[in-house]
Design a protein around this nucleic acid. Structure first.
Length: 361
RNA sequence: UGGGGCGUCGACAAAUGGUAAGUCAACGGUCUUUGACGCCGUCAUUCGGAGGUUCGAAUCCUCCCGCCCCAG
């Protein structure tokens, strides 16, 4: 975007450094910027973190004020509840481990918010994500953020061509350190110091407590803790407390550390040694492709969780949105409910949700 | 109540006369736009109890308490 114009761009502003800098940067470049913040949740007074606490909304508003562009707040609380929160609870009931942040991008930010942006007459919706959007021979491709340490493309795997046509990531080429410097240069001093956001925005305490409150004690799936051979080692108060690879909080006595190997919707939680966590083969559901769907088989790099480097794998298209993934080397704790994202080099090919893991290692 | 053995942190387990390792768990912190993992740190002034020997004992002696095994 090197042609300054009066083109209108809506910037999704969370109140953090990244999206604030993105907004000001676009404004400086001459765009007709409108800042928008989503209200996704009603926070308690004691809320210590979140994507859109009253303080965050206020921070975003101040940035807009200082730099002279309008700022609106859209209330998407109901939508957020119906999509992200619902999915979060459903996921735990199935014995899976949800990734609400990726889900929020898919179901709220780049669908509902994007629609709002268009209604405001914007050509693009900009966000502060560290990812790159590149147009190449008629396709819009998604690349990892240049700053690999902050790369967030994993969370954006579900973007489609149609969505990408109206989306832009002004920070994709920049390192985080540069963004903080820019924040200072733009006079956003307090924001420049603001710590990176972290943890699920709509939960303040423990996840287990949240699930228990929402689902009700009756709906929790209790069951037995077992070892790999099925022998019972103990009991637990609900499968929502466990995730594959987990070590803490199992309450089991043993000489070696024990990890959760699998969580079953019928209540069984299988545990075992770390080595048993390594698996090669799994299946993905709800597969989506960014630029073009692959046919049949392909060699890719697969990333099965955030903060994890993509590893070589073969994928096999099964149809009906399903894909079989075979890692070259066994990987630790492949977890149903998490997103599996496929890359080739820097490019995000697409991804889906981990559905099941084959027992062989 | 004939013989033998054992009793060290919530669990396992070293140190057998020189001033309480380690592992698991737990807790705290760090990392992180998900959950985990990882990493760092904390965690027995005390060794079933009471006496005694010794410069000095969890380690030796005596008695008591509690377990376990072999016999019967």
């Amino acid at each position: 975007m090197n042609s300054p114009s009066k083109e209108r761009i809506v910037v999704a502003m969370s109140g953090g450094v990244d999206s604030s800098v993105a907004a000001v940067l676009l404004k400086e470049q001459g765009y007709d910027v409108i800042g928008i913040s989503m209200r996704l949740w009603t926070y308690d007074r004691e809320a210590t973190h979140g994507c859109c606490t009253p303080e965050d909304l206020d921070d975003a508003r101040k940035v807009a004020q200082i730099h002279g562009f309008p700022h609106y707040i859209v209330d998407l609380e109901k939508d957020f509840e119906k999509t992200v929160v619902d999915n979060f609870l459903k996921s735990y009931r199935m014995g899976e481990t949800p990734n609400p942040c990726a889900r929020c991008n898919q179901d709220v930010k780049f669908s509902i918010l994007l629609k709002k942006a268009k209604e405001l007459g914007a050509k693009y919706l900009a966000t502060g994500h560290y990812a790159r959007r590149v147009e190449e021979n008629g396709k819009i491709r998604l690349y990892r953020g240049k700053d690999h340490g902050k790369d967030q493309s994993y969370f954006l795997f579900a973007l489609t061509q149609e969505e990408l046509a109206s989306v832009t990531f002004p920070l994709g080429e920049l390192p985080k350190s540069e963004v903080r410097k820019m924040a200072e240069a733009y006079g956003l001093l307090s924001l420049a110091q603001k710590p990176d956001s972290q943890e699920i925005c709509f939960i303040q305490g423990s996840y287990a407590d949240f699930v228990e409150q929402r689902l009700g004690k009756e709906a929790l799936i209790k069951g037995k803790m077992t070892d790999e051979s099925g022998d019972i080692l103990g009991e637990h108060d609900g499968i929502h407390q466990f995730t594959v690879g987990q070590r803490k909080g199992l309450g089991l006595q043993s000489l070696e550390p024990k990890y959760v190997l699998a969580v079953h919707p019928d209540g069984r939680v299988v545990t075992g040694p770390n080595e048993s966590l390594f698996k090669r083969v799994f299946e993905v559901r709800e597969m989506t492709w960014v630029a073009e769907p692959l046919e049949q088989k392909a060699s890719v790099l697969a990333q099965i969780r955030s903060r994890f480097s993509p590893k070589p794998a073969e994928i096999e298209i099964l149809g009906d949105g399903r894909v079989k993934v075979i890692f070259q080397e066994p990987q630790r704790a492949i977890t149903p409910g998490q997103a599996a994202v496929f890359f080739q080099g820097e490019e995000v090919l697409g991804g889906g949700w981990i559905d099941s893991v084959q027992d062989q290692s």
